[in-house]
Amino acid sequence: MAKMKGDIVIDIDKCKGCEVCIPACPVDVIGVSKNVNGKGYNYVETVNDECTGCTNCAVVCPDGVITVYRKKIE
């Protein structure tokens, strides 16, 4: 069966660390970083590479900081 492999790119300068994307992710890819961005928010980052590219996180992100890529793997 073809498997989908995804990846997300987070614009950490614009992320406000609201964490709405974390419960939206079905495979728990996203976690809060220990570091802060220029505005002082603890931005989110990917914590593993289970991403399937389902776009749920990007769809709920209020600030639209997440870009999603998806590739089919044979």
């Binding site: 590479d49 870009t67 998806r70």
Partner: peptide
Amino acid sequence: IKKEDIRKPENLVYKK
């Protein structure tokens, strides 16, 4: 699979 292979314009599914 390297992340660089996934992050290509043809694989883009969602952006702002």
